[in-house]
Write a protein that binds this DNA or RNA. Structure first.
Lengths: 219, 219
DNA sequence: ACTAGGATACTTGTATGTTAGTTTATTCGT
DNA sequence: ACGAATAAACTAACATACAAGTATCCTAGT
């Protein structure tokens, strides 16, 4: 999935994707290839490839010979994504708890520290980067990196949702991360599963508010 | 994911994908866009889009300005895919057992009957179609169709593997399907999970043989 | 026989032109 | 004033041409 050469296609893909996540392109909005070309000052070909890719990933909806639209957020998809991620991630963290070593724990410490820095700076974007890094690292420990890569497709839907709620509870997230590490350290499987479950359901707190604030962002 | 309009892109995508699954294009082989254009008598643009798509799905590996290669089968990926599918599918079938109705059971009967027909005709390809249909149907019952759609990416890896072993044990698969339906009917959760687990590990029986038969198909 | 260097023939990436289908605006008939 | 037919404008799909990097082969020199 990674190993993206830095060519125009990938540049276009990254920027457009970011624009969608930051709702610079708002759900339901009609855009056009030409519009994006000009905005990105990239030729039609690479932009087109990027759009097709984003379409397959569910971020665009394109009607042939007619128009391209930013997909609305599908709550059914969000829920199914949550279901999959919770199910899998419980097992990942338990499995990781059997394999984790001192060096890994040090690395996790570093990630959490960095996340704290960005929390205090209220750097929403970087905070999320290290939030993802935290979770990803456990997949690596459990020798399931491919699962994480695949999960990114599901996370896309979840992340769109998370990006909408700008007043994320920084402190709570970090505290839960620390609790999880603690539970992993003592290999308390039941506790791990309970914490993961709670952690991944933090998003739910905002659902109702977001639905009211942006009613036509959703399908 | 579905709702593919029948344009050249999708035509090319479908045919090439089938060529890979049937190992008409063998793992590791170098191909080229031009070669495929000519073979499919489709222009470069649509073929190119198809290739890029297949690249993102992990079936091709392309080196810029150099060449495009059919990906070898990554056993690590296959194993991780199996892990995810087994984990999720257990829950899907249990959940479906709570929601299933008479009409669904009739539909399942029909699917199994069709599969039997193709088994006797030794129609490998259609047999697999209805094998997939069987599993897919339970995702639909459990209201988790999106999960199935996502799962297709993982199944790609598994299916490449399955397509290699031409002497699949038709009878055993069908018998297990019937057993699963029976367990679902009486809502025996433990039994369901046990059967799914066994069912999805049928592939394992062939692993060693395939590795020896096609050593350089694998990574 | 062997190596270094360069021309040449490939490859994919990108730009631009053309086609076919869709939507929107306009015109014409009533 | 209104509705239907029609023309114009717009869109994404597809074709073609070019650019830029890569691999291969051939030759010159030793």
């Amino acid at each position: 999935m990674a190993a993206n050469t830095i060519n125009f296609q990938n540049q276009a893909y990254d920027t457009i994707k970011e624009m969608i996540l930051k709702t610079e392109l708002i759900p339901g909005e009609k855009i056009s290839e030409k519009e994006l070309e000009e905005k990105l000052t990239i030729g039609r070909s690479p932009v087109r490839v990027a759009i097709i890719r984003l379409q397959k990933e569910g971020l665009f909806h394109v009607i042939p010979q007619s128009g391209t639209y930013v997909s609305k957020i599908n709550l059914q998809q969000v829920n199914e994504a949550k279901f999959v991620r919770e199910t899998i991630e419980k097992l990942i963290f338990v499995e990781a708890s059997e394999l984790i070593n001192e060096k890994d724990l040090a690395e996790l410490d570093k990630i959490i520290k960095l996340q704290k820095v960005y929390a205090e700076a209220e750097d929403h974007s970087n905070f999320l980067v290290y939030d993802e890094a935290f979770h990803e690292f456990f997949y690596t420990i459990a020798n399931k990196r491919n699962v994480w890569d695949w999960m990114q497709l599901l996370n896309l839907q979840l992340n769109r949702f998370r990006m909408l709620s700008l007043d994320v509870n920084w402190g709570k997230i970090i505290r839960q991360h620390e609790e999880i590490v603690q539970a992993v350290k003592v290999k308390d499987k039941q506790q791990i599963e309970a914490l993961i479950s709670k952690h991944l359901h933090l998003v739910d707190e905002n659902t109702e508010r977001l639905l009211k604030a942006y009613p036509n962002y959703f399908l």
